[in-house]
Amino acid sequence: MAPVLQSRRTDPHTGLTIAIVDSLGNLARRLRRALGRTRFERQLDAELRFHVDAECAELVQRGVELGDARRQALAALGGMDRWREEARDTRATTALETLLRDVRLSLRSLLRSPSYTLPVVATLALGIGAMASIATLAYDVLFRPLPYRNPGELVALFERNVPRQRDRNLVSPVAVEAWRQRSRTLDSVSVLMPSSRVRRSRYCRSHYCHRRHTCASIAGVIGRAKRGVAR
């Protein structure tokens, strides 16, 4: 029997890129099928009819009467509908089709009852908006690394005034100089002064920003002092 083929697809090369291209092509094919379902059905039916006709013709050639041949051919296929379902289910597109159908149905029923849809959408919008702002805030306050080089190596030193029972003393320049010279763990030491004595820049708008920027300006003043900041 001579197989007939009108068109051929060129063989892909091997390798990773082809695998990606393959899977992309796969996805495209599935989408195409999900959207162009009727085309697939048509092809399926045509394929089936061809099979039955061909089988029937061969049986007739062997001397079977036409009506019997047709019955036998159909029986051999096990009833068209049964395996047609099976062939459809075999395709992985079925899940995608179901999903698309579900989405369409949901959209339609939502549009039909705006008195339900609007509050739901509003609630979701508010909730999502609130979550987004909280997340942004939490990230800025809690998680975002300080805008310095090696922020993990920054330490803050405080001087405690024991006689006056003060947790934070204003450190004298002499003490800072002593820390700077004698410390073996700190690369460099810088001082953070009360804000009134620090030159304000255009970045200092809020208190929060202001404090951060004071540090940054100190780091700038010290040059590449990125390790130790005393206050």
Binding site: E47, H51, W83, E86, A87
Partner: peptide, 8 residues
């Protein structure tokens, strides 16, 4: 070949 299983 069981033709019902061929196409699937």
């Amino acid at each position: 070949i069981n033709q019902g299983s061929l196409y699937p």
